[in-house]
Amino acid sequence: MSIRLNPYLSFRDTAREAMEHYHRVFGGTLTVNTFGEFGNPEPTLANLVMHSMLETDRGFTLMASDTPPEMDLTIGNNVAVSLSGDEPDEMRGYWDRLIEGGTVTVPLEKQMWGDEFGMCLDRFGIGWMVNISPQAA
Rank of each mutant, 00 (worst) to 15 (best):
M19D: 10
L83Q: 01
D96Q: 15
V25P: 10
A18F: 14
V79R: 11
V81Q: 10
G102F: 14
W128N: 02
A136E: 07
F26G: 03
L9I: 14
T61L: 05
E37R: 00
H21P: 04
R24F: 00
A136Q: 08
S65G: 07
L5K: 06
R4N: 12
S52L: 01
G127S: 14
Y8R: 02
D122E: 11
V32R: 10
D89N: 10
A80Q: 10
T74E: 12
W113T: 00
G102S: 08
K110L: 15
A18E: 05
D89F: 06
D57A: 12
Q111G: 09
V79S: 14
H51F: 02
W95Q: 08
G125L: 09
F117S: 05
E37K: 01
G101F: 11
V130Q: 05
T44E: 07
N77W: 04
E109Y: 12
L108R: 14
G39L: 03
H51S: 03
S65T: 03
I3F: 05
S65Q: 06
I126T: 15
T56F: 06
T44A: 07
G59L: 08
R4I: 01
L30T: 08
N33V: 02
R123N: 14
I3S: 10
S52Q: 04
V81S: 11
T44C: 03
V32P: 06
D122T: 12
T74R: 08
I126Q: 13
S10C: 09
F60E: 03
A80L: 08
M1Q: 07
D122C: 12
F124P: 01
T31W: 00
D72E: 03
P134G: 06
K110N: 06
H51M: 03
D72H: 00
R92K: 15
V106A: 15
